[in-house]
Design a binder for these strands. Structure first.
Lengths: 343, 343
DNA sequence: TCAAGATGCTAATACCTATTACCGCTGGAG
DNA sequence: CTCCAGCGGTAATAGGTATTAGCATCTTGA
């Protein structure tokens, strides 16, 4: 187990010298190239492999990428810290899925520590843009700058977004959740329980995930022949005042946390949830929210989305075609906050 | 912002040809090296900069890192999954600190997620060891094989351990928590509250972090002139029997979870915590533990440890000296489980 | 007038791997 | 004896940037 004490990185050249072969031979042994007309005698191969084992040599991923344009790294780019400070973080399940799939296809994960803030906004492209260090990239975040997506597309940089994205000068590869369908299903469920006047609380615009929810809401409301209103969340008291005045009996919240606060406010007004007022949470909490209620609504298949994003990316890299835009169904949650509408 | 229609990347060579200078000159203009004796005429510099702006040229980060002999990847080796499944996972705060510091020094993180288990134990060194993919490594885990640490040292592989480690054929760079001091402080506090007979429950050996706690405990007990016993945790009933029989009034638990179980057992015997029996938790929970008690004891500066580990690693890589072994103080927690000893 | 510096740049090379083109040797067929 | 095929490799080079050593040309001073 003797190892050279030099501090220098071990290179193929070193291995070559140790075994009395050329660097080329080492490279071929490493890559087990059987398809070419290069032949290496079994005993030579063994000698080289032995030296590699002895030294713990690993090909420099950077040189590898420069020469071969591949290094089996998948980049993970997020607009938030990758290891989030908040407990039970929203992004965590995505990352689990990404890690699992990356491992299954034999790729390492390169976590880009968060992008620098330029002009008050995080940016992918900046002075020392690191995206190209990996073979391809998974992009994570509620909102991605269309201009940056467009540039990625234009440059032919292989990437996949977790979450549906609008076209940005071309179709953006993504694995998203089918928010319109999931939201519509909840609206139908509410309508079936007799709710005639329901509300959507949230942005409903900006990020695609928000717009998609509102779109599904609006379409389903129309189809069910009931009345739906849309309000932005400001503070619980104000919003609740407004909605109760309108005779709303079920509140659909874009943000779980807003729902928790609203339900709390309702409780402090002696309104029972769901007997007096129903709530539907359109997805998992993205912020910590404290509530004892088990919200009705749906769950985002986050882990699966992460997994499939890597799958799509892998296909993109291999040039094997296949659908590059996938929408996954959300899992409905019966919960305990949606009941028959009060008469 | 006219971009050449070719699919090839713009290189410094291209810029050089466009402006009638050499690639070297382009490189110098780009890097604004004023410290060298290289001089570029202002008008030449302007011409080059104009071409750069026109083409939108950005230096290829891969080539850049190849030339720099640094890839600015920091490896993270852990004995657990990197994206922990459990909520509030013990290792999480370390990772947060690691990421934050990596970002501040402009490094990305490379995850070594899948160290194979050999002979019933995870190993750093194995067949397809990827350690050298990064410039340096952060090692995370309660226990690290001294033989592997020795090999890392011998090979001159830059690394830093999170958590103090005994010498392994040489001093191991680490950023640890000062468990002896933190534990001793708690012992003194208990002694000050009149406890004359206290116990340490846990391994007290094996991992350095355990041995350090017991060492601090033993030294402080002696200094305070009180009596301390050490028992391993088997099951709550047995241990509690034993300690109560000995007249112990304060129990110091190495593992938070063991403390929770012991306190629960005490409660089921109609003993009040802390009036009848005091508890001190020597650190944060490493396993999920359910308890309503707010334990007295101390907190491990996990985030700070992660941060400083990267700091030390960075210094190691830069060859700038500095202390490579750091012990950080733990934060005492007053809590509600340590009170005046029963008369 | 000529050496000594200052000025403004370039050639060459290192970084490390992957790949292409080729080379020398041996044994068997013709 | 020659030619060729098969074997087992090697030399050279690409890939793009950073850096070191050095080369012309011009200015200055004595």
């Amino acid at each position: 187990m003797t190892v050279p004490s030099t501090n220098r990185r071990v290179t193929q050249q070193d291995i070559a010298r140790m075994t009395g072969v050329s660097q080329t031979t080492v490279s071929f042994v490493l890559n087990e190239r059987d398809d070419t007309d290069i032949r290496i005698a079994p005993e030579t191969r063994e000698r080289v492999l032995a030296a590699i084992r002895r030294t713990g040599y690993v090909a420099d991923p950077i040189a590898r990428r420069l020469a071969a344009r591949r290094n089996r790294f998948l980049g993970v780019f997020t607009y938030e810290p990758v290891f989030p400070a908040g407990l039970g973080d929203f992004y965590h399940p995505f990352l689990v899925g990404i890690e699992e799939c990356a491992e299954s296809i034999g790729c390492d994960l390169l976590l880009f520590t968060s992008a620098p803030v330029v002009d008050g906004r995080r940016r992918i492209f900046h002075q020392d843009n690191r995206l190209r260090l990996a073979d391809g990239c998974v992009l994570l975040g509620r909102w991605l700058d269309p201009a940056e997506l467009a540039r990625l597309l234009a440059e032919g940089q292989p990437f996949v977004s977790v979450g549906r994205r609008d076209d940005a000068g071309g179709p953006v590869p993504y694995v998203g959740a089918d928010y319109p369908a999931a939201t519509a299903a909840q609206v139908r469920r509410a309508a079936g329980l007799g709710h005639r006047r329901i509300a959507y609380v949230g942005e409903g615009a900006g990020a695609e995930s928000h717009a998609d929810r509102l779109r599904g809401f609006t379409a389903a409301v129309e189809e069910a022949g009931i009345t739906g209103t849309h309000v932005r969340f400001t503070d619980a008291a104000t919003v609740l005042d407004q909605l109760l005045e309108q005779g709303v009996t079920a509140i659909f919240v874009e943000e779980f946390a807003d729902g928790a606060v609203l339900a709390g406010e309702a409780g402090s007004r002696a309104l029972n949830v769901p007997e007096d007022l129903s709530f539907v949470a359109l997805g998992d909490p993205t912020r910590p929210a404290s509530t004892d209620l088990e919200f009705s609504g749906f769950r985002i298949p986050r882990r699966e989305m992460g997994w499939q994003a890597v799958e799509v990316l892998s296909a993109l890299l291999d040039g094997t075609g296949g659908e590059t835009q996938r929408l996954l169904p959300c899992e409905p949650v019966t919960g305990a906050t949606l009941a028959v509408a009060r008469a």
